[in-house]
Simulated assay, not measured.
Amino acid sequence: MAIRKTSGKSKRPVARGKAGRPPRQRHAQAHAAHRAKTAKRGATKSEQKWSHHVMETSDAMDIEHNIFKTGNAQSIAESLKRSSTQSRRRKGSPFQSAMSMLNFYINRAGRNLPKERRDTLQQAKRKLRELFGRAP
Rank of each mutant, 00 (worst) to 15 (best):
K91D: 05
Q29C: 04
A19G: 09
A109S: 11
V54D: 09
K40F: 06
P136T: 13
L80H: 01
Q96L: 04
S83W: 01
F132K: 03
R117V: 12
Q48P: 01
I67R: 02
N66A: 10
R108F: 03
P94L: 05
N107F: 00
R90A: 03
T44Q: 11
G20F: 03
R35I: 13
D59S: 13
A124H: 00
A73V: 04
G133T: 05
A33W: 07
N107K: 05
K115T: 08
E64I: 07
F104I: 05
H34N: 03
S93C: 01
A2C: 03
R16S: 12
I67E: 03
P22M: 09
A60N: 11
D119M: 06
R89L: 08
H65Q: 11
S51C: 12
M55I: 15
A135F: 10
K91Q: 10
A77S: 06
K115M: 12
G110M: 07
A2W: 05
Q48N: 08
H52T: 15
R12C: 11
I67G: 01
R82I: 04
E130P: 02
R12D: 15
E64V: 10
T6N: 07
P22Y: 08
E116N: 10
K91L: 09
S79G: 15
A36P: 03
K81S: 13
S51T: 15
R111P: 01
I3V: 15
A28R: 13
R16P: 02
S46Y: 09
S7T: 13
R4I: 15
R126V: 12
I67P: 00
K9Q: 10
